[in-house]
Every structure is written in C-alpha cells, then in structure tokens.
Write a protein that binds this DNA or RNA. Structure first.
Length: 284
DNA sequence: GGGTTAACCTGCGGGC
DNA sequence: TGCCCGCAGGTTAACC
C-alpha cells in the first residue's frame, strides 16, 4: 500500500477534501472541517510506514510540518480512482488534486480505520514521526529495530507472549494473524510467560515475525475476506501461505497434528498442539 | 502504574 | 423466507 501510494500521490497538491463520515476522522480531534481545511493546497512529500500506520508528510508554505496519518483498521482501503469513477457505498474521505488526475479515496466498511492530521516531530537523527504515533514501537523490518532491547523489555513484562506481540508499543505491525504465524514458526505457545523467555527463544520469535511479514509483503498482504486491497483494488494472496491461522482441524505441515483453535481475548488463536505445547506456567 | 477487558462497527453465515 | 446471534479484528478508555 505504501509503495503504491508513494508512486501515485507523492509530489501532488491537494485541491479538495471531502469527509463523508465523521467516524473516519474521529482521531482528528478538531473535526472533519478542520481536517479538510488543513490539507487544502498541501503538497504530499512522500509516504512512510511504521507498523500498521501510514503517513504522508504534507508541505504547506509558511506552516509547521504536518502529516496525514492513516490506519486502515480491518476493512480500510486507500484507492486511487478517476474523478468520475462511481462512488463506493463505504466511501469515507475523498481527496482530489490540482492536476485533475486520480483521486485518493478512503473506503472503509467497518469504520475501524481512521485518518488524522498530526504534527511532525523532530526524529533526532531518524525520520520525522507524527506526534500521534510517537508511542508506536519500531517495526521488526525496520533496520533500526533493536533485538536486544526488545528482548530486555519482553523479559520485564508479566504477561503472555502473544499478548506482548500484539502490543504495538512493544513491537509494531503484528496483528492476530501474524502473531499466530510467528509463534508457529518459533514453535512457541502464545501463553508462554514473557519473563521466562531466553535470548534464543526471542530470536526465534523475531525470525518468525520477519519471515511472515516479509512473505506477506512480497505477496501483497493477507486478504481472507476480500476487504484488503492495494491501491489498484487488487487483493494479496498471502492467505494461501498461512500455516496455523484459520486451519483448525487441518494437519500441521510440520508434524501432522491437527491445528487447534482456542478462544483468546474475544477472538481466536490457532496453534499446533504437537509443535507448540502449553507451558506449565501459562499466562493467557 | 502495569495488566486486562469491553466497546466501537458492519456484513456474513449458520441456526431456527 | 426472515430474523437473531455470533464472529471477525485494532485500538483505547475504563477498570482492576
């Protein structure tokens, strides 16, 4: 998504912004009118990502640096469509540009996604980060990610491993699916107490996370319900490469034991009981 | 203050 | 046929 947006919107100047659902800008506390007004005449300077957040720095002459921050939630899409293209039922925000070319449309069925304008803060040697996502940890694919610091912070926690992987202030970009996939690759149980993890086990977890995220990126993302699409409206194919998630009852591709589905935090976890046995001191 | 839970939301599929 | 319920999931406010 980031790559697609970079190609299609970087360098273009915003001519109009139309917010058609207030919930889509609920994280912009000043409201939809302010959101739109701030972006008029702004030129998109690039597209960046950290974990599940995307942001586009925008340059407005004479104004402090800001960025449009986007989180797609579960069903959000950022589509580039010709100005005359039919309007989708779940269109939430529409951006048009001074060149009259393709519009950027934020479409989101379940409205868990959101857009906001946020001030850019000095990155102290690293890239500038929007203030609203300052609490989001580094992405494991970011060269700056510090494996040793992650291991130390993990050991200080008093919780289960899967819970920790889902905590975006500890490590970003991992959701329910990639957590299960990484744990399967690391042969660890999600209820494993974080304070008991060895350096080698943390290494296996990070290796698993990176394998899953890299493979998913190469495939264009995971789309099991046809809601996740790239800027051209095309789905990814990563769902066909899943080893644990959604495979309840099917044999583990490593040991043949049927994959088991278990309730977890009002959702589901999938694991192989053979490769990922429950630890004696489990922390759910 | 760290850890945990529920609410937010919509569409779909299963059961009756 | 149609209604109701459960489920999917990321984030955060509110609770313990």
């Amino acid at each position: 998504m980031r790559r697609g947006l970079d190609r299609w919107v970087s360098g273009r100047t915003i001519a109009a912004v139309q917010v058609s659902h207030p919930r889509a800008v609920r994280r912009h506390l000043a409201g939809g009118d302010d959101f739109a007004a701030r972006l008029l005449g702004a030129t998109v300077a690039g597209v960046h990502r950290r974990g599940k957040y995307l942001w586009m720095p925008v340059a407005v002459p004479g104004q402090a640096p800001e960025a449009v921050v986007a989180h797609l939630g579960m069903s959000g899409q950022l589509l580039l469509q010709p100005p005359g293209a039919p309007v989708h039922r779940h269109l939430r925000v529409r951006f048009s540009f001074t060149d009259g070319g393709r519009e950027l449309r934020f479409v989101d069925q379940r409205t868990f996604g959101a857009l906001a304008v946020s001030a850019l803060e000095d990155g102290q040697g690293r890239q500038q980060l929007p203030r609203s996502i300052a609490h989001i940890a580094d992405d494991p694919l970011d060269p700056a990610f510090d494996d040793e610091a992650f291991h130390r912070r993990l050991r200080l926690r008093r919780t289960g491993l899967k819970r920790a992987l889902l905590d975006q202030s500890l490590v970003s970009g991992i959701g329910n699916i990639y957590a299960d996939e990484a744990l399967w690759r690391a042969r660890l149980h999600g209820a494993r107490a974080t304070e008991t993890l060895t350096r080698a086990e943390t290494g296996r977890v990070l290796a698993g996370v990176r394998q899953v995220m890299s493979a998913a990126l190469a495939q264009g993302g995971t789309s099991f319900d046809a809601l996740y699409v790239n800027v051209n409206g095309e789905s990814g194919y990563f769902d066909r490469a899943l080893e644990a998630y959604g495979r309840a009852g099917e044999p583990c591709r490593r040991c043949g034991t049927p994959i088991r589905r278990e309730p977890f935090m009002n959702r589901s976890s999938f694991r192989c009981p053979g490769c990922q046995p429950r630890p004696r001191r489990a922390r759910l």
